[in-house]
Design a protein around this nucleic acid. Structure first.
Lengths: 111, 111
DNA sequence: GTACGATACATAGATAGTCTTGGCACACAC
DNA sequence: GTGTGTGCCAAGACTATCTATGTATCGTAC
């Protein structure tokens, strides 16, 4: 029974998830969302109304770069790749997530 | 070097952190914030502008109950305790956090 | 005697990001 | 010819956090 993630828990982690996805190669927006959902067994879902604003935001900040191309199924699609600046951001985000997740778990799941 | 948590990463977890804190006994708002920061080695900080609205919200929802009393230092303070409804909510929140954190870590920190 | 930091609560407004909903376009299967 | 999957986009609502500020008391240092 997937979809354990309802409210705004993605807050602050969506960017990192997208950046990390792109380290495996360029992908279009739709493909990014599918990949994240597949990888998390549908426990993290990415709504399109969250995905595209996030992509614009990150492109504006220079973390990713976009280019129009053709999808595997022959459709017009915009492909994103991660930039060097994006990789630095990702590294910082991952460090931050690790610290934060460990801290929260220490409170919520004490031995 | 504490304070690794900047932006709105607390989103969706603050309630659970507060509820969990109260399972160790009734506390006033200020004490809750101090306890969370101490327990996480200052890696999670709780701003007062986030704390008090959260307490009101949870009281309104019946997850916690408030009562005026006197602090350890002899000051007037409002003490909160967790209700049975709050305990059920906490259990659900913890389950949700575990699933979510595991899913995100699977993406961000692959072996 | 006053300036400061810690304790303790409270509110207003800004901010930011996600979610809801809807629309467009194409392809394929039934 | 209808539905489902692919793919993009935008407007607005929503919600929670953060910033900033205010109140008040107390102890301590100067």
């Amino acid at each position: 029974m997937p979809n354990t993630e309802p409210n705004g828990m993605l807050h602050g982690t969506l960017d990192a998830l997208i950046l990390k996805t792109l380290t495996w190669g360029a992908r279009h927006g739709y493909g990014i969302a599918r990949w994240i959902e597949d990888t998390t067994d549908e426990r993290v879902t990415v709504e399109e109304g969250s995905l595209y604003p996030a992509l614009y935001r990150m492109e504006r900040r220079g973390w990713i770069a976009a280019e129009w191309g053709t999808s595997e199924l022959g459709r017009k699609a915009k492909f994103y790749r991660i930039t060097p600046k994006g990789r630095r951001q990702l590294a910082a985000d991952i460090e931050q997530w690790s610290q934060f997740a460990a801290a929260v778990s220490k409170v919520l799941l004490p031995a």
